[in-house]
Amino acid sequence: MIYEAISFYALALFLTFFAYKTISATNPIHSALYLVLTMLGLGAVFFSLGAHFIAGVQVIVYAGAVMVLFVMVLMLFDLKSELQAFSKGMLSGFLKVFSAAALAGVAIGVISHSVQVVDGASWGVGDPNADVTKYLSILLYTNYLFAFEVLGVLLLVVAIGAVALSRMKGGTHADRR
């Protein structure tokens, strides 16, 4: 119990610190690198929650593919620290932070008041040696087969769209042809 608490709070501290650095770093590349660390920390949280396969996929997809893409694009532009990284206006900025903080506060308040509802009996009971990956795949290819196929089509459309967007002769850079 105490070990679980220690690991949870260490990970939570790690995650919130690097998430904060992600949104506060003025250099976008540093921002992206902090976000990579956040993603890795989330992978560790998934692992500690018993979702081993999801943790692996999180690291492969987010840290290994999506964020590499982000960092590569940012490096391609060779951006330095931005002079004006944040939006202007004290009042609107305060309102934005306040609204996000209020959302988080409301969410945490609701969660902490619904402990009796949320705290299921099966929490922590799950068999650590159960073959989660196997049941996950069975579920994915039976109940969620249609969604899976649709996702494949979505990815195809997105791939074509991204290629079309970045090679488009008209549209955004028609005048620079």
Binding site: L15, T22, I23, T38, F86, A100, L103, A107, V118
Partner: peptide, 25 residues
């Protein structure tokens, strides 16, 4: 540590993401 701790962490991270979308240019 129960589900509510993880959910609170999730809420905090979500609001950080929200701030980034609203505040950054």
């Amino acid at each position: 540590i129960g589900p509510e701790h993880y959910l609170a962490l999730s809420a905090i991270l979500f609001s950080f993401g929200m701030i980034a979308v609203m505040m950054r240019k």
